[in-house]
Amino acid sequence: MNPLQRYLPLVDDEEAFLEACDRPLPYSVRVNTIKTTVDRATEALDDEGVGYEQTDWNPEILRLTEGKAGTTWPYFHGWLHGQEEVSALPAIALDPQPGETVWDTCAAPGSKSTQLSALMDDEGFVVANDNSLGRLSALRHNAERLGVTNVAVTNKDARNFSLKPFDFDQFDRTLVDAPCSCEGTCRKNPDALEKWTMDHVHSVVGIQKGIIRRAIQATRPGGTVVYSTCTFAPEENEAIVNHALETEDCEVVEFDTPLETSPGITEWEDEEYHPSVEKTHRVYPHQNDTGGFFCAKLRVGGVAESEEGEA
């Protein structure tokens, strides 16, 4: 079964949605501001005759229009990292600040972790975790090539992640870019549609619930958790956020996205979700000519230390 049919009732333009899912994905790169500036990186691409256009929503994301960036000098210097445009969204939503302590629960191969470090000016502490030892080497390789020095790499199951090794007992912000059924990547990996089964959705949902709960528990009162996936399945998106609302002390908060998005849904098949999940964002491929995506921002309950005594 082609899972895309399931989601047609959710999209505004079925034909545009299906057409976009069938087109190959534009190739894009992120400028790594730890090692260079946008000006220098684009000058280096100009010198090598690689065509690009800056996305109108983020000057650090470049869509390549001619040639490839992988075998160029700016790539060799670690000034560029191949990263799908829409996958830059969760790190921007998390909005980490220099000096903060940040956890990336499912970090390999490191595109979002290294983006977090760049957003923090490589100051503070990023714990980049992944439970797959095999994928960890790609994460390490990318972090080193991009010159990231504020990262600790761990190889644990995020669902029962322990902060024992560290000299702090909670994170300021946590990113859960969860393992998912990935139909949103179909423009890059058509396999994702062929291999899709409802059984897989059900099995991955349990993991997603475990990780989002641990993420909220490990994040300080008033801190931020961002949950993202590259699936359209409400079972893996709104339903997971709804589960977090029912089981942990947190709330969904609004955030601006520079991309065109649709609000999270509150009803799916026989399920109803908390009305606040409308504040989450769904990204369909035809909206911005990207992959498909889901992104939610949560505020962890309780009073932040900085707010104590203010009220």
């Binding site: 080193e144 020095t149 790499v153």
Partner: peptide
Amino acid sequence: ISVEGLGM
């Protein structure tokens, strides 16, 4: 500290 990687 016992982690897989620390800085670079």
